[in-house]
C-alpha cells in the first residue's frame, strides 16, 4: 500500500558513466533568433516519399526538417505564430503529415493542428481548442485528449482529428481535482490514465467516457508526471518522474520511479526508484520515456539516461559548448535521442 517500500536500484558511481554509449549522428541549428522550446520526430510525406523528419519548435515558429543523404537536415516547412508563443510540440502517434502544438505563456491557451495543403505546397494551421488548458496528449487513432478548467469545473475532452484537421468531440467524466498529465495504457486498449494534483492516478474508459477508478499513490513525491503506463498480469505499471523530489543522500536523487498498482483494489507498491549516480547533483526538469529507456534533463544542465530494466543510469551527457541542455526527446521514428539547447542547436544521438 505504501511506496515507502521502494527498492533503490544499484547506483553506479558517476565516474563509471560517460556519454560513450551515445553516438552523435548529426546536428541541426535552427537559425531563428527566438528561444528554442521543443523537438520531436515523425514521419512526413514529401514528394510522395515518407521521410523520418524532425520537428523543431521555437517561441514563434515550428519547422519541419527533412534528412539529406549527407547526414544533414533541410528545412522544408515553417509555421509561424504571431501572438501566442509555442510551449510544446504535441506529437500524434501513428500519424503522418500532422502534428499538434500547444501555445500559451505560463499555461496552455491554444492547441493547434499543423499540416500542409493537400498538394503539399503550403503550411496550414487549424485552431483546435482554446481555454485554460492544463494537460494535453496525442493518442492513437488520431485522437487528442486535453483537460481544461473553467471557474466551476474541469472538462476532459477527446478530439478525433479528421483529414484536414477538423474534428469530432467527446467528453470524459472529469475527476474533482486538476489533471496534470495523461498516458495511454499499453496492453489495455481504450484505457487512459491521468495523474492529478492531489497525487491520485485516475483511469478512464475512452470508449464510454467513464471514470473507472481514482487511486492514491502516496505523498512521497508531489506533482508526479506520468511518462508511461502498461498493463500486465492484472497490474498497472506506471513510470513517473518527480519534479518536486528532494535530493536524498546517500542513495542519490530519485528522478524516475516505477510503481505497480492493482486497479481493482487501488493498492500500490513502489517497484524501483531510478536515481542519479553518486556524485551527480540535480533534479528532474523535463524528460521522456520510450520502450525501456528514460531520459531526463536535470537542473544541473546534464542529460541522464536510464535503462528501466537494468534499473540504473547508463549514460550522462554533460552540457556541450558550455550550453546547458534544455529539452530531450526520444525519436518516434527510430532509436535516436534528440537533445536540444535554448539557442536552437539540436543534437541527434
Amino acid at each position: 500500500h505504501s511506496i515507502e517500500q521502494t527498492e533503490l536500484a544499484d547506483v553506479p558511481a558517476c565516474d563509471s558513466l560517460n556519454p560513450g554509449n551515445l553516438q552523435l549522428v548529426s546536428k541541426l541549428k535552427n537559425p531563428s533568433g527566438s528561444c528554442s522550446v521543443d523537438v520531436s520526430a515523425m514521419w512526413w510525406e514529401i514528394a510522395g516519399v515518407k521521410e523520418p523528419c524532425i520537428i523543431t519548435a521555437c517561441e514563434y515558429a515550428v519547422s519541419l526538417w527533412k534528412p539529406l543523404d549527407t547526414g544533414q537536415w533541410e528545412k522544408m516547412y515553417s509555421w509561424h505564430f504571431a501572438e501566442v508563443p509555442v510551449l510544446q510540440i504535441v506529437p500524434m502517434p501513428d500519424v503522418c503529415n500532422l502534428v499538434c502544438v500547444a501555445l500559451g505563456n505560463l499555461e496552455i491557451r491554444e492547441i493547434r493542428a499543423l499540416l500542409c495543403s493537400s498538394d503539399g505546397g503550403c503550411e496550414k494551421q487549424v485552431l483546435l481548442r482554446t481555454g485554460n488548458i492544463h494537460a494535453v496528449l496525442g493518442l492513437t487513432k488520431r485522437r487528442l485528449v486535453s483537460s481544461s478548467r473553467t471557474l466551476c469545473d474541469q472538462q476532459v475532452e477527446i478530439m478525433t482529428l479528421a483529414e484536414g484537421g477538423s474534428e469530432e468531440k467527446q467528453f470524459l467524466m472529469p475527476p474533482e481535482e486538476t489533471v496534470l498529465t495523461f498516458a495511454e495504457v499499453q496492453g489495455t486498449q481504450e484505457a487512459l490514465l491521468g495523474t492529478t494534483i492531489m497525487n491520485n492516478i485516475v483511469i478512464w474508459n475512452l470508449k464510454t467516457g467513464q471514470l473507472l477508478k481514482k487511486m492514491h499513490i502516496g505523498d512521497s513525491y508531489q506533482a508526479s508526471v506520468c511518462h508511461k503506463a502498461y498493463s500486465e498480469m492484472g497490474l498497472l505499471f506506471v513510470v513517473l518522474s518527480h519534479p518536486c523530489a528532494k535530493e536524498r543522500e546517500p542513495s542519490g536523487s530519485p528522478v524516475f520511479q516505477l510503481i505497480a498498482i492493482n486497479p481493482k483494489t487501488a493498492l500500490s507498491v513502489g517497484v524501483m526508484l531510478y536515481c542519479l549516480p553518486q556524485g551527480q547533483a540535480g533534479r528532474f526538469l523535463e524528460g521522456d520515456v520510450k520502450d525501456h529507456f528514460a531520459a531526463a534533463v536535470l537542473t544541473s544542465g546534464t542529460i541522464a539516461i536510464w535503462d528501466l530494466l537494468l534499473g540504473h543510469c547508463t549514460a550522462l551527457l554533460p552540457p556541450i559548448s558550455d550550453q546547458n541542455w534544455s529539452f530531450v526527446k526520444w525519436s518516434g521514428t527510430d532509436s535516436h535521442l534528440l537533445a536540444g539547447q535554448k539557442d536552437g542547436n539540436i543534437f541527434v544521438y
Binding site: H1, M173, L267
Partner: peptide
C-alpha cells in the same frame, strides 16, 4: 512486490471496473 501487498488481482480489471462504474 508481493501479491499480498496489492490484494486480489484480476486480469480483466478493465472490463470489471467498466461494468461497476457509473455510466
Amino acid at each position: 512486490c508481493s501479491q499480498a501487498d496489492l490484494g486480489p488481482i484480476s486480469i480483466n480489471w478493465f472490463e470489471e471496473l467498466s461494468s461497476e462504474a457509473p455510466p
